[in-house]
Design a protein around this nucleic acid. Structure first.
Lengths: 339, 339
DNA sequence: CTGTTAGCGCGTTCAA
DNA sequence: TTGAACGCGCTAACAG
């Protein structure tokens, strides 16, 4: 393995000159430049990153900490983060917390030890409470989860609005006894529930929100829905606060031999391929997933460049995609309102 | 930020003793141990990884290079890799190649520069040709893709067998004009096609394999299938060589207003949630995804521990999951064979 | 068992 | 513009 001193010797210059040529920002005569580049090529020299990092105190590495990469939301976000990072010559360290605060803290400690350039975090509820980015020794951007008073850059959906619109759509289409299944492990589920509750109240309807411990799998959502579907009377509609919970609800309906929208309507979040494929299609709020990831990494890059600039927040709007699972009911309230 | 010398001073010992206590493998008196640990705690000392890596020439980092993390196969594999890595105090650097050889090479160079402990790679066809793990300066394990003569540790499905069994199942159930859509960008698709061709031949049937440039999205599969479904006569069945292509085929059938299995049967790979949800369920070969990822990282850990041991290969068997999309045809060959 | 010391490979002063 | 020398923080020899 060739070292910088080997290159210097081969080129007949000092190691400092080699370093300068490689760094590119200092003034070096063209002749030295050429000789160094030639030697680098001849020796197949590659700078030692460990040494460079020790000296420069920079790692060109960012950390991506999510609850579970298998959640399609985070899958897509991580892809965007990796894409942009790659373009900026940054490596990405991937971490899954499983909504476990201890694991999350271990990973955050790891980020400090790694001296990463920055971190993109989807925090647990516990960590989000009173969260301040400047309490950490590295730049950090939150994604997907963030409260109104959180002191950190963040990229989120307008969750309250999304929950409100999705619920209003159901009500407009004649569904009145709507049950909202929301994940209790993240701020997102609670915010969407808030919108649901507001929409129900705005129409003089009683809200029924079912908490779901939606830790990464759809299983909890399925179980909760299945339990509810055994009781009578049946609700008019089931609403999921996330893509994973929606999957669980769909499974529960299938298992209960209930067709939607005839027996029970269904709606939720994330426009994943299967929501289109399951007949007659499932109504969802679509999030611009890749865009969210891209915004997060770009916010982080800006924060790295200007550590002291004011906190910024990117709030994206979800798109309501109406499908058969919430088709208008005959003689429904929606119709009478329209009349 | 406290340094090792600060800890040494605070504890009234030498830096070497601090290093020994932290390393744990040398003999140190209990009194020094306690004092060092106390000082470490008092000063909130954290060793500098950059310095440690420069000195020890080890990074405790592994690279995971896949075509696209959004492919559910790699999503699940990456989760397993991260889990096991975490347990072994290893970090994971995530890389997406998009089946692009140039990107793949850049990432492999990066792995060298990073001096990673090892790499898990899902190689492009180009890279797989004549691949030898020992041509690289770090331990490497292949996942998902591997030829018979590849000189590298690898974890793969028995793809030929899986393609054969899936096709045989179709034939047994009375489907004879079966078209196989396979991804041309990976060895996996070709191997599964091989099994398909063999099964068709074994029953005296003509094989029709349609190449699909399945670069990470289902779109190419959808387009290819849609094109074919416009022509007459229709085939008896569509078979996908991967989960993503299966998604595309399903979309094409939906778009063509063709119901399965009545108009055309459908089968493919990967037992993802949606294959159960799309009525009447899609027949698939299920791969033990998490298991594949786990086997890969464990193979890598063993290779790291014993760099010179013989090349090993883990070949897993897929499980045929029969669903409505390939229901037995009336008066079919399957019935007559069974009679 | 403990301390002293010499690097690991590089970037960056400081003089020239 | 260029080169010599120092030190980033740590681990591993070596000597005691």
């Amino acid at each position: 393995m060739a070292r910088i001193k080997d290159v210097a010797k081969q080129a007949g210059v000092s190691v400092a000159s080699v370093s300068r040529v490689l760094a590119g920002h200092s003034k070096v005569s063209e002749s030295i430049r050429q000789r160094v580049l030639g030697a680098v090529h001849d020796l197949s020299y590659r700078p030692d990153l460990a040494a460079r990092r020790l000296r420069s105190r920079q790692t060109d590495t960012i950390g991506l900490i999510v609850s579970d990469i298998r959640n399609p939301f985070f899958t897509e976000v991580s892809r965007a983060v990796e894409d942009v990072s790659y373009q900026h010559h940054l490596r990405v360290i991937l971490c899954n917390t499983d909504e476990d605060v201890e694991k999350e803290n271990l990973y955050l400690d790891l980020m400090r030890d790694e001296n990463v350039s920055g971190v993109i975090l989807s925090p647990t509820l516990t960590t989000l409470a009173g969260f301040r980015a400047r309490d950490y020794p590295f730049p950090m951007v939150l994604v997907d989860r963030c409260d109104r008073d959180t002191a950190a850059d963040a990229v989120i959906l307008d969750n309250v609005d999304a929950g409100y619109r999705l619920t209003t759509h159901l009500i407009d289409n004649g569904y009145r006894r709507n049950i909202f299944f929301y994940g209790t492990t993240s701020a997102t589920g609670r915010q969407r529930r808030e919108g649901y509750v507001a929409a129900m109240a705005a129409h003089g309807l009683e809200a029924h929100a079912e908490p779901v411990r939606s830790t990464a799998t759809a299983e909890h959502g399925r179980a909760a829905a299945y339990e509810r579907l055994r009781r009578r009377p049946l609700p008019d509609a089931l609403v999921a606060s996330s893509g994973l919970i929606l999957l669980g609800l769909t499974e529960a309906l299938r298992e209960s031999k209930l067709r939607f929208p005839d027996a029970v309507a269904l709606a939720g979040f994330d426009d994943l391929p299967w929501t289109r494929l399951v007949e007659p299609g499932i109504t969802v709020i679509s999030q611009p997933l890749y865009e969210i990831g891209r915004a997060a990494i770009e916010l982080l890059l800006q924060r790295i460049a200007k550590p002291d600039q004011a906190v910024r927040r990117v709030v994206l709007r979800g798109e309501l995609i109406e499908r058969g699972s919430t088709a208008k009911r005959n003689g429904s309230a929606g119709v009478s309102v329209a009349a």
